[in-house]
Each structure stands twice: as C-alpha cells, then as structure tokens.
Design a protein around this nucleic acid. Structure first.
Lengths: 163, 163
DNA sequence: TGCCAGAGGTTGAAAGTTCAATAGAAGTGT
DNA sequence: ACACTTCTATTGAACTTTCAACCTCTGGCA
C-alpha cells in the first residue's frame, strides 16, 4: 500500500481543465440554442434523434436508454415529459408484456425535422468549424479510446462470476 | 435565406456521437467514484479545488462562478450546501458590502486533501491512461480552440457596441 | 443631499436527475 | 401447479440546476 499519488502532469492538468470548461460551455451553448429556437432541451433532442433513426421510429425503453447512455429511471421521467408534449407515444410489448416501446409521434418527428438544421448549425459553429479535419479525427479517436475503457468497466453490470 | 443545411459528414457524425457518449460516461464515472469514496459530487469537488488554489483559499462569488463556468445562481445554491457541510464559509466584503467571499474551511481543505488522490487516480484511469502523450496535447488543443470560440461568444455579456 | 441606474448576490418555484424501493411479467426448477 | 429468481420498467423522495424576480449596495450626477 501507501502508493504515492501520480498527480497530473502540467500538460495533463491543462488538458483536463480545458476539457472541463469546454464541456460545460458547449453543453450550455447547445441547450440555449435549442431552448430558444425550439423550447426543447438538448437532453430531449437527443432522445427524439435516436428514435428517429430507429426502425419504425420505435425503440424499447432499455434500448433507448443504452443508446442515450442514460439510466432507465432518467428515461422514464424524460419519456413522461415527451409524452405529455405529444412527441412520443408509449406502447406495451405484445409478446413480452414487461417491455415498453417508445415511438416518435408525427408531431415529434415534425418538431425534430424543424429543429435539426438549427441544432446542427450550432454544433458546427461551436465545434467543428473550430477544428481542422485532422482534429476531427483526433477527437473521434480520443473519445472512442476513452469510451472503450468506460464501457468495459461499466457494461459488466452483470456480476463477475467466481465459481 | 433558404440556405440549405450543412449536415455533419460521416466522420463528424462519428466524432460527435463518440464525444457525447464519452462525456456522459466520464462524468458519471467521476461522480460515482467521488460519491462512493467521499460522499461528494464532482460539482462540489470542483468548487473546493478552485478555492484551494486561490490566495487565502478565498474567492468572491462571481470570480468563483467564472472559474467554474457556472451561473451565479448555481453557485449560490452550491455554496449553501457546502456551507451546511462545513466545508466553506461565507464572509461579506469589508469595503464593498455587496460582494461575498467564499473561503475554504479547515474541514473543507482536509476533505479535499483526502479526496484528491482518489479523484486524480480516477481521472487518470478513465482518461489519461487511455491516451498517448500526443493525444493529451491534441485534446488540449481541441478543447482550447473550442473554448476560445465559446468564450468569445459568451463573454460579451457586455453588449456589442455599434457606434 | 437625493435620485437612480447598474453591479453583486440571493431567492423560490419549476424542471431535471439520482437513488433506492417497488410492481409486474417471464423464465427455472421441482 | 408452485415457489424463486431475474428482467423490465416505474415510482417517489431527495437533491441539483435553471430562470426570472428581487434585494441591497455602490457610484454617478444633478
């Protein structure tokens, strides 16, 4: 024991602080744009976008949660809201009565269609327009590397066997 | 008008989705670690860490908000909590009676001191250990570029002159 | 002095998120 | 058939964040 802490190097520290700041400001910028132009949060936009890419604009709650990297509880609450807004509809599974399917409504698809261009423009303006093509690939590689680690750690919600 | 939307390219799309997923999982991982080992959220840790780096472990509310990239309201609420926990103390400005100084208490410094190694280890394990040295610099450059843009847009709360 | 616009913070309510507990349905074995 | 366990999703309470309204103090200026 008594390993001494491997503190962050100067360069790591700078990268980390820049990342934290950038992440917060970027999220806020996207939220502000969507809230202003569509009365919708980025969180909800993401859900609608994921649904719109699914077959029949429909996904089971758990599948939706996984693609959104959100907890099931978070999704339940979010879908409650989106249902109230008339943008998503719930339907119980026909075969397995435990599952619930969330489906984009016409209105939901429409609002997404109208909102998407402004949102994409904001993502461009704030992120991709600031980066070279190389940097876009660098960013992807960095995120995918970290993602791999995070999902390896986290995916195993199924307990590690010891038999 | 009627500009047609510049949708994201395939590569941009992949970078964007990876970024969103990574950001969410990383935040959750850090929050879980701090919550588990110290009963503290990452949001609070950040505030304590910023204060600990300030002269006399003290900062005005607005300065703290700026360094944390948080709204003043958010900070007020957070400092309320941290004050209840006994980790931060408020003090009114002596000269300008409007300002409030937030100061780390002994207990606050102590909890930060004990918590920091575990947190740094988590940041390392989840982020920097997954990256090459080059990638660390790439990440910093990317984040700083985006940050520059975001702060240029946002800093000007002071209205853009047109005289 | 006295008015007032603006700066610095706080407040309370609404909305969003987390966490642990729960309900209900489907498999599993006896 | 029955009891058990697991899977899927929801619930409600506690906590966090946002948003707009508000309070207090300062500095400018007539």
């Amino acid at each position: 024991m008594a390993e001494q802490t491997r503190w962050l190097t100067e360069r790591e520290q700078r990268a980390w602080l820049a990342f934290l700041a950038m992440e917060r400001l970027l999220d806020e910028a996207l939220d502000r744009q969507l809230q202003r132009d569509a009365g919708m949060s980025h969180a909800y936009y993401r859900i609608l976008a994921i649904l719109s890419a699914a077959p029949n604009h429909t996904l089971r709650m758990s599948e939706l949660a996984e693609q959104d990297r959100a907890s099931q509880s978070r999704l339940t609450h979010a879908i409650n809201r989106l249902e109230q807004a008339g943008w998503v509809r719930r339907e119980k599974g026909a075969t397995d009565r435990r599952v619930v399917h969330a489906q984009l409504t016409e209105a939901g698809y429409e609002v997404l269609r109208q909102t998407a261009p402004g949102h994409v423009e904001a993502v461009r303006a704030n992120l991709f327009d600031q980066l070279s093509e190389e940097q876009v690939d660098q960013l992807r590689n960095i995120c995918e590397a970290v993602l791999t680690k995070l999902e390896a750690d986290h995916g195993p919600a199924r307990v590690p066997r010891r038999d």
